[in-house]
Amino acid sequence: MMNTSKNPEVKLTPGDIIVGKWNRNQYTILRELGAGATGTVYLARGNRSKVAVKVSHDTLSITSEVNVLKHLSKVQGKTLGPSFIEMDDWVSVKGALPFYVMEYVQGESLFEFMRKRKEEWFGILMMQLLRDLTDLHKSGWVFGDLKPDNLLISGPPPKIRWLDVGGTTMIGRAIKEYTEFFDRGYWGMGSRKAESTYDLFAVGMIIINYAYPKRFDKKEGGWNQLQKAIDQNRWLKKYRAILYKALHGHYSSAEQMREDLLKHYSAKSSVKTTTACRPTRKSSPSVSPPVSQNGRYKGKKMKKRRHMTETVLIFLFLLVFYVVYLMGQTM
């Protein structure tokens, strides 16, 4: 029997405990973080820390997502998506339910964050995003469902993070999941093949979305409609050249688009941008605080172990000395 689509969604309430059938780890549900087409994400308490747990009735899509998360955590030295912890099955009253556990990324959504900041932050965050996309594309993947709702600003220092990797697709395949407004297929400006240009189109649309928070519907579609939207907005018009290239797929890499954005901000007022850029650079070494904390933790452990061996050695030495002394006494 295949019951991939008709199972009723299981609702978990705070205080519920789920236990993995394979790894026997236990998670206490704290609250719901969000519900999507493929399942519900909860904030939960694991062994030590807070984690995000996604529970779903759809084994196929959840397994697919886990595959992506695992691939992303292999991209060296970078935390692109939320880091993956484990996957397991929870045997509930209604049968076995697959779930997976990942890092709980805390922060504000992109537009929420921008509401309290000056406009130059937006450019900086877009540059951060493009730098991460460069790494992702180099590793053979395309984000796919790129939109403000899937971006979170963690920090301080503010750092853009990706939330939902449901659309992340291997380069060359068909995009798995997308949102119409950010999809070049919807606007009639290209295919849904996973290419770096597909993500860059979406970045262009995020910039447009920032100027039109309510978005807009497709009328005639294509560059004609988008061009009008760009020209009618004074802020957006300044980005016209960059948007033109991004929406037409003229950037061959995310890096190129980032450089153009950087030039744009530097040209605007060189004094302003040098101060504005510094936080980006500062943020890169502290991209992964959990890792460095872990390292420190391990270091402590190592030191402790060294202390232990030293004590044991001294004790043994004294013991041998005492035995020799005793033997000397009896002889």
Binding site: S64, V66, N67, M87, D88, A96
Partner: peptide
Amino acid sequence: MEDLPPDKRGQVMEVVD
């Protein structure tokens, strides 16, 4: 597929994809 351990399941899913 649902009866396989999660790791193996991931491999099968790659084939499905």
